[in-house]
Simulated scan of single mutants.
Amino acid sequence: MRKRSFGNTVIAGVTVVALCTGAWLLRSGAETHAPPQPSAAQAHAGRVSGVDTRRAAAPALPPSPPDRVRIPAIGVDAPLMGLALTRSGSLDVPPAGRKNLAGWYEAGTTPGETGTAIVAGHVDNAEGPAVFYDLGALRKGSAIEVDRRDGSVALFTVDAVEVYDAKDFPDEKVYGAANRPELRVITCGGGYSRSTGYRGNVVVFAHLTGGR
């Protein structure tokens, strides 16, 4: 398992495998319940007619832990818990039983400050869809809001939504340092197998465009 440096810590190449069991699909026995996946048009190289995804970055905010994430376009409004690394160096995940709970990598960048902040959550659990079930349906130009503990709200604009097989997960592209405030939101995706669960991850790339 490859490892990449991220800030002052190390994250393994396969970071969110625990998110990807596909418990609901396995229990229901039907892949028709599979969550939406991003189209090629939502990738970095694509274009969306009529949507300007080139909004200038806003000035960085001072560090402050996040408490809540909202993504209005897909109905996400969820509390955030701190996530650490497992012994293998992969990113830990929120408890599977709490389907409307997401997490952020608390040893890294806080959302809104300069650098790459990481938020992750389950796509489903044994009972059905979880917090980021519709993440693959998000489109460029969509808004992401993060409530911070200092009372401010960091406002991000989506730059791209991409899906990767676990074996080809681009560590540096997703977790690498940034010279502006950026955000990654991660869940499972990339197809589903009854024997192994989801084959990869959906990743949303966004940058800070405002605050209040």
Rank of each mutant, 00 (worst) to 15 (best):
I11Y: 00
I11W: 00
A12E: 10
G13E: 03
G13N: 09
G13K: 07
T15F: 01
V17W: 04
A18S: 14
L19N: 13
L19S: 06
C20T: 12
T21C: 11
T21L: 02
G22M: 06
A23F: 13
W24E: 04
L25Q: 06
L25C: 06
L26Y: 06
L26I: 07
R27A: 01
R27F: 10
S28F: 03
S28C: 02
S28M: 01
S28A: 07
A30P: 00
T32P: 02
H33K: 03
P35F: 09
P35D: 05
P35I: 00
P36N: 11
Q37R: 13
P38G: 01
S39T: 01
A40R: 02
A40W: 07
A41W: 13
A41T: 07
Q42S: 13
A43P: 00
G46Y: 15
V48W: 06
S49W: 14
S49C: 14
A58K: 10
P59T: 01
P59W: 10
P59Y: 08
A60Y: 00
A60T: 12
L61R: 10
P63N: 08
S64C: 12
P66H: 07
D67T: 15
R68F: 12
V69T: 10
R70C: 09
I71V: 14
I71A: 09
A73D: 15
I74G: 10
G75F: 03
G75C: 01
V76H: 07
D77Q: 13
L80M: 08
L80S: 14
G82M: 06
L83T: 07
A84I: 02
A84N: 11
L85C: 02
L85N: 07
T86C: 04
T86S: 12
S88W: 01
S88A: 13
S88N: 04
G89L: 10
S90K: 00
S90C: 03
L91I: 12
P94M: 03
P95I: 06
A96P: 02
G97H: 12
R98N: 13
K99D: 13
K99C: 00
K99Y: 06
N100Y: 13
L101T: 15
L101V: 08
A102I: 09
A102S: 10
A102L: 06
E106I: 03
G108F: 00
T109F: 03
T110V: 05
P111M: 09
G112L: 11
G112C: 08
E113T: 09
E113P: 12
G115Y: 00
